[in-house]
């Protein structure tokens, strides 16, 4: 599919495959054009709407009871399904209420949207108005209700993307920077903008010192890093890899198997990131690794402790800078 949409002087110019039968997350910073893309698909702007059920970013609650709002546009069978979904989303007891909170409105709107039978499900920030502890439960209901239908879900939130998505499109400044399986996008961001947007990346600058088949070795801050990329010797390049692709060892491991990159140094920082922990290792260059709190404890890692970071070369992307 291809879109060019002028709005407010901005330009949305996308050319992207969105697979059917999967949940595709459109991810990107605010103002990237995600909602515009979804509006085009839903047909609230533009000319060619898909056959879709659509949850707008700003949920609008009409005058009247929550139950009346829930049933808008639904036939009897769909309304029953919506009531069932509202129950599962924890708002089933509020049918008669006329004053409901933002999070409750969001749930009613979600129940109504998901109860519709259209083959495409378009959701704009479906978890945005919800408390952190409710998100997992709501996400589970969303995934179940979508079933084997196709879905496009817009979010600027990493957790929501990981929970809800199978496929991922990264949209920045109205342009698609990367599209693919969600794990792939997180593990191997296509460029620095994606790495910054998905927020899990190590991004380092350096110069190509050696090449070998699809790999090249980049000198950066006294370390040599092997990664994937076709470059000439002496090229100035940027190296990037996801923090979750880094394996950490306490001290120095006897062997790192097939991995090309092993960086030894001192832990300089340990910081919580959502439900995970990021560990920064000074190995001439700073290396960021994403761990669970459990792994951190098992390894006994803390600031000032020696450690080794290991990364497979195939998880490292080398791009021109």
């Amino acid at each position: 599919m291809r879109f060019t949409y002028p709005a407010d002087g901005s330009q949305l110019d996308c050319d992207v495959d969105i697979p059917t039968g999967m949940r595709t997350v459109v991810f990107g910073p605010n103002g990237a054009g995600k909602s515009t893309l979804l509006r085009l698909l839903a047909g609230t702007i533009g000319e060619n709407p898909w056959d879709a059920t659509y949850l707008p970013q700003t949920v609008y609650h009409f005058r009247g009871s929550a139950g009346w709002n829930l049933g808008l546009g639904l036939n009897a069978e769909q309304a029953a399904r919506a009531r069932h979904l509202a129950d599962r989303l924890g708002v089933g007891h509020l049918m008669e209420a006329t004053a409901v909170s933002g999070g409750e409105r969001q749930r009613f709107a979600l129940a109504r949207t998901l109860a519709r039978p259209e083959p495409w499900v378009l959701l704009d920030e479906p978890l945005a108005a919800l408390d952190t502890q409710d998100r997992i439960n709501v996400a589970r209901v969303i995934v179940e209700a979508i079933g084997d239908r196709s879905a496009v879900i817009v979010t600027h939130d990493q957790d929501a993307a990981v929970i809800l998505g199978q496929n991922m499109v990264v949209l920045i400044d109205g342009a698609v920077h990367q599209a693919g399986p969600i794990h792939e996008v997180f593990a191997q961001p296509a460029d620095e903008a994606v790495a910054t947007a998905v927020g899990l990346g190590n991004v380092l600058d350096g110069i190509v010192r050696a090449t070998e088949g699809p790999l090249c070795s980049v000198a950066s801050g006294g370390s040599a890093i092997w990664g994937v990329g076709d470059h000439e010797l002496g090229d100035t390049v940027r190296v990037m890899f996801g923090a979750e692709t880094v394996t950490l060892y306490a001290g120095t491991p006897p062997s790192v198997g097939s991995a090309r990159n092993a960086f030894s140094g001192m832990v300089t920082e340990v910081r919580p990131v959502g439900r995970f922990v990021e560990v920064v290792l000074d190995a001439g260059v700073p290396i960021v690794a994403l761990l669970t709190p459990g792994s951190l404890e098992a390894l006994g890692l803390r600031e000032g402790v020696p450690a080794t970071a290991v990364v497979k070369a195939t998880a490292v992307r080398v791009v021109p800078s």
């Binding site: 609230t44 659509y54 949850l55 700003t58 009409f62 519709r116």
Partner: peptide, 26 residues
């Protein structure tokens, strides 16, 4: 804009959509 977008998203028959809109703007 949020109301008008929601009105489209409800996919109501056009007379029903008009009724809901006028009711909202009573």
């Amino acid at each position: 804009p949020a109301a008008s977008e929601q009105l489209i998203a409800l996919r109501l028959a056009s007379y029903r959509r008009g009724f809901v809109a006028a009711r909202e703007a009573l």
